[in-house]
C-alpha cells in the first residue's frame, strides 16, 4: 500500500475502508484538527442562530424561544426594493474592486518585476505597501480632511486657483469613484505581492530560454508570465466571488458614517446591517438581511464554481 502514491493513491483511495483511511492519515488529520476546530467553533456553531431572522427576537427567550414570525422581517425589505438596491450596490462595488483591482495588481507586479534597480524596487515596493498599514479608521479622517467643503485640502486648492469649490459630501454620484479609489489605493500594493510572489516562483530556466530565443520583454510577459499567473488569478477570483455579497465594511463606514445624502450610492449590505442594529436595536431585521446575503452569495459561488469546473476542472475550488 505504501507504494501507492500520487495519482494512484487518489484513485485507489475510495476502495479502502473508511477506518483504514482514517488510521493511515491520522497524522495529517491531526495537523488539520486545529483549523477544523477553529471553523467549527467560530463559523459553524453560530449557524443555527440564523433562525433569529424568522423571529421577533427578545433577550429573555433567546434565539430559539422567541416567537416565530415567518418572513415578516423580510417583507418590507423586499417590498420597498431596499434589498434589490443594497444587492446592486454591493455587487457592483465588489465587481469593480475585483476586476480593476486584479488588473492593477497584475500590472504592478509585472512592472515591478521588470525593474532592474534594486534600490528603486525596494523603495517603491515599500511605498506601495504603505497604505495597507493605515487602518480604515484613519482613511476616513484623511478623506474628510482632504475633501470637506470648508477647509478641505482639495477645495482650498480649487479656491486658490480661483475655481468654485465642490460640495463633495453631498454629491452621491462622486462617491463610488472615491470609494473605488480608496479601495485601490489601499489594496493594490498589498494585493500585488501575491502576484509578485507567483512571478518570482516561475521557473527561471523558462525565462532564460525565452531570452536566448530572442523574445522581447513584451513577448516574455505575454507568453510566459501572464499564463503562469492564471491559477493564482482564478483562485483569487473565486475567493473574491465568495465575498461578493460582503463588503469592506470598515472603509464604507469610516468614509460615509451616517451621512444619508450618500446612501443611495454607498449603502451596501453590511453598512445597512450595522446601521439597523445601531439605530434601531433591531437584531432580527439585520439578521434577515445577513441571511439573504449568505444565501445569495452561496448561490453565486456555487454557480461560478460549476462554471469553472466545466471549463477547466483543475481550477475549480471544490
Amino acid at each position: 500500500m505504501k507504494k501507492n502514491k500520487t495519482g494512484a493513491a487518489a484513485a485507489a483511495a475510495p476502495k479502502k475502508p473508511f477506518l483504514k483511511k482514517l488510521k493511515d492519515s491520522r497524522t495529517l488529520l491531526l495537523m488539520c484538527l486545529p483549523a477544523i476546530l477553529f471553523f467549527i467553533v467560530f463559523n459553524y456553531c453560530p449557524l443555527p442562530g440564523v433562525y433569529i431572522a424568522f423571529t421577533n427576537y427578545n433577550f429573555r427567550d433567546g434565539i430559539f424561544g422567541s416567537p416565530f414570525v415567518g418572513f415578516k422581517n423580510f417583507e418590507f425589505l423586499i417590498r420597498s426594493g431596499e434589498l434589490w438596491h443594497l444587492t446592486r450596490n454591493t455587487v457592483l462595488y465588489n465587481l469593480a474592486f475585483i476586476v480593476i483591482g486584479n488588473v492593477l495588481q497584475i500590472a504592478l507586479a509585472i512592472m515591478l518585476n521588470e525593474i532592474g534597480s534594486k534600490l528603486f524596487k525596494k523603495v517603491s515596493q515599500t511605498l506601495m505597501f504603505l497604505p495597507y498599514f493605515i487602518s480604515v479608521v484613519l482613511i476616513g479622517a484623511i478623506a474628510f480632511n482632504i475633501l470637506n467643503y470648508d477647509t478641505g485640502a482639495l477645495n482650498s486648492l480649487i479656491r486658490a486657483t480661483g475655481g468654485n469649490p465642490i460640495k463633495i459630501y453631498s454629491q452621491a454620484g462622486i462617491w463610488p469613484f472615491i470609494i473605488l479609489f480608496c479601495n485601490l489605493w489601499q489594496q493594490t500594493g498589498y494585493g500585488s505581492v501575491v502576484y509578485f510572489a507567483s512571478i518570482c516562483g516561475i521557473d527561471s530556466s523558462m525565462i532564460e530560454a525565452a531570452e536566448v530565443d530572442g523574445a522581447t520583454s513584451w513577448q516574455r510577459i505575454r507568453y510566459i508570465i501572464l499564463p503562469s499567473l492564471k491559477p493564482t488569478f482564478i483562485i483569487l477570483l473565486l475567493f473574491a466571488l465568495g465575498g461578493i455579497m460582503k463588503g469592506n465594511f470598515g472603509l464604507f463606514w469610516n468614509l460615509i458614517g451616517n451621512n444619508s445624502q450618500l446612501y443611495s450610492t454607498t449603502n451596501i449590505i453590511e453598512t445597512f446591517v450595522y446601521r439597523t442594529m445601531m439605530s434601531q436595536n433591531n437584531f432580527a431585521t439585520s439578521s434577515a438581511v445577513g441571511l439573504y446575503q449568505s444565501i445569495f452569495g452561496f448561490a453565486l459561488v456555487m454557480f461560478s464554481n460549476w462554471l469553472v469546473k466545466r471549463i477547466d476542472p483543475d481550477y475549480a475550488l471544490f
Binding site: 415578516k72 422581517n73 418590507f76 425589505l77 451621512n259 444619508s260 446601521r275 434601531q280 433591531n282
Partner: peptide
C-alpha cells in the same frame, strides 16, 4: 416591529437631509 423597522429605515435617509 417590522413596520417600525421599515419606517425607521425611511426616516434614517430623509430626516438628516
Amino acid at each position: 416591529e417590522a413596520e417600525m423597522a421599515a419606517m425607521a429605515n425611511v426616516l434614517s435617509e430623509y430626516l438628516p437631509q
